[in-house]
Amino acid sequence: MAIKKPYFSLHEIALLSLCAALIVVLNSTFSLPIKIPGHTGIYWVVPVIIGVGIVKKPGAGTYIGFISGILATLFGFNTLHIFNLFIYLALGGIIDLVGLLFFYRLDHPAAGFIAGAAGNLAKMVVNFVLQTFLGIPAAFIIIGIGTASITHFIFGGLGGIIAALVLSRLLKAGVITRDKS
């Protein structure tokens, strides 16, 4: 009987899990003292984009989102608790899709900007949907969604550019290599 090869290697699982843990660590220890919606996207998206850019397989971002959502729920971040899982899954899943669209060339600043902005906007949308589901009046959410979407886009994009530059430097330094396919 043939042994089925796992989708992610042990090395990839370790790397993706470390990226997921880094999101939770950044979220708990690093805070900017500005009160602008979405400003945390400048550092939330970086580990996801770097993880997806290194592993280059569909599902890498979703795996990072799933693990970071579980960790955020276990450590009690945000007021949504178990629903954090959906927020982090949306972030990782959208960055997965953008990575696939750009053939995992997330080391380019434009691709990084789009991936970061899309991931941060997906996180915002899921957050608003969950808040509506939990009973917050839709009028309050609609009023706040305009400014929040612009700031989520900007900060997520800036985080994506940072991730692209870091990933590019890792490639140039030879820390990671691109496969020939």
Rank of each mutant, 00 (worst) to 15 (best):
I87F: 05
Y88H: 15
L89I: 15
L89P: 08
L89R: 10
A90S: 14
A90F: 04
L91V: 00
L91S: 06
L91H: 01
L91R: 02
L91T: 03
L91P: 00
G92C: 07
G92M: 08
G93F: 14
I94W: 03
I95W: 01
I95H: 00
I95P: 01
D96Q: 09
D96S: 04
L97I: 14
L97F: 11
V98K: 06
V98A: 00
G99E: 13
G99M: 12
G99Y: 10
L100P: 00
L101H: 03
F102R: 14
F102K: 15
F102N: 12
F103K: 15
Y104K: 07
R105M: 13
L106P: 10
L106D: 09
L106T: 11
L106R: 11
D107P: 00
D107I: 00
D107N: 15
D107Q: 13
D107E: 15
D107W: 13
H108M: 07
P109R: 03
P109W: 02
P109L: 03
P109N: 01
P109V: 06
A110Y: 10
A110L: 15
A110D: 02
A111N: 12
A111D: 01
A111M: 04
G112F: 01
G112C: 01
G112E: 02
G112N: 05
G112H: 03
F113T: 10
F113V: 08
I114W: 05
I114G: 08
I114Y: 05
I114Q: 07
A115Q: 09
A115R: 13
G116Q: 08
A117K: 08
A117F: 03
A118M: 15
A118G: 14
A118Y: 05
A118I: 11
